[in-house]
């Protein structure tokens, strides 16, 4: 009988050690490793102590407990049902149902307040801050000059004055104009091989931040959709099904890139909209 008691006492002794270690390391300013190990040691001592105690000093059973049937005797249930079925007039009951129903519906209206700001989704999602004549700026607000976009580089551009919007970021790249195969009607959307696409993946909206320059591919780091820059950012593989929307570009007098309009379709992940 002595040995288990000693073991249990030793385990709780470990907890005392852990407590001292935790307290001392807190005071000494060690904020994670030693403090955490002190706590862990303390709890481990408690765990060992309790378990040893249960295994050695306490009755082991097995004990047997009888189950009572989980069904009420029929009489009891009938009595309850009779209680519930107290007769009442039909009209008040129906009126109560109507009252609760309409009142419940009225309670749904304030849910609309959860949508705090801005126009309805179908309007807000369809447009971004890009307009004809809005200059492209980088994340520091400096205008992006066409000459800065050298072949093989990648610039993330924002509409001037709208650096913080979630849906406007565009990737600006320069490709060989002779190799560019854009869909019909977009011939004038580029400036000497400089193209711009929405940076938001058309699958789940992640920023398509990986540019594999030699292959002219944009890759999404979230689900590995690959877009072919030379073919108007058409999806090549991965779960994205639509091309990255292209931003029409032109040049202003100072050689700065300017949008020639908004993206032709909504950017980012798709949603229930006429197509």
């Amino acid at each position: 009988m002595k040995r288990p008691e000693r073991g249990i006492a030793a385990a709780f002794g470990v907890t005392v050690l852990g407590a001292v270690m935790a307290a001392a390391s807190y005071v000494a300013g060690a904020d994670r490793l030693l403090l955490g190990l002190g706590f862990a040691l303390g709890f481990a001592g408690l765990a060992a102590g309790f378990v040893l105690w249960a295994a050695t000093l306490l009755p082991q059973g097995p004990y047997v407990e009888e189950r009572e049937p989980m069904v009420s005797p029929p009489g009891e249930r009938e009595a309850l049902e009779a209680e519930y079925d107290r007769p009442a007039g039909r009209l008040p009951r129906r009126m109560l149902a109507l009252a609760l129903g309409t009142f419940g519906l009225a309670g749904v209206f304030p849910v609309r307040s959860l949508i705090v700001h801005g126009p309805s989704p179908s309007v807000a999602l369809a447009t971004t801050a890009w307009r004809d004549g809005v200059r492209l700026v980088d994340q520091d607000g400096r205008p992006v000059r066409a000459a800065d976009v050298t072949p093989g580089t990648m610039v993330t551009a924002f509409p001037e004055g709208h650096l913080d919007t979630g849906d406007s970021a565009a990737v600006v790249l320069r490709v060989d104009p002779a190799k560019l195969r854009l869909p019909a009607g977009r011939e004038r959307w580029t400036v000497d091989g400089v193209v711009a696409f929405s940076k938001l993946c058309t699958h789940a909206g992640c920023p398509v931040g990986q540019y594999v320059a030699p292959a002219q591919q944009l890759v999404c780091p979230c689900h590995q959709s690959v877009f072919d820059v030379l073919r108007g950012a058409e999806p090549m593989s991965g779960p994205a099904a639509r091309s990255l929307p292209q931003l029409p570009l032109r040049l202003d007098g100072d050689g700065v890139l300017v949008a020639a309009g908004d993206f032709p379709e909504p950017v980012g992940a798709g949603y229930w909209r006429p197509m």
């Binding site: 980088d138 000059r145 000459a147 800065d148 976009v149 050298t150 093989g152 580089t153 990648m154 610039v155 540019y211 594999v212 320059a213 030699p214 292959a215």
Partner: peptide, 13 residues
């Protein structure tokens, strides 16, 4: 330089 698959970033960027 943008070695391998990496884009290059000139002074203007």
């Amino acid at each position: 330089l943008g070695p391998g698959a990496m884009p290059s970033f000139p002074r203007g960027v």
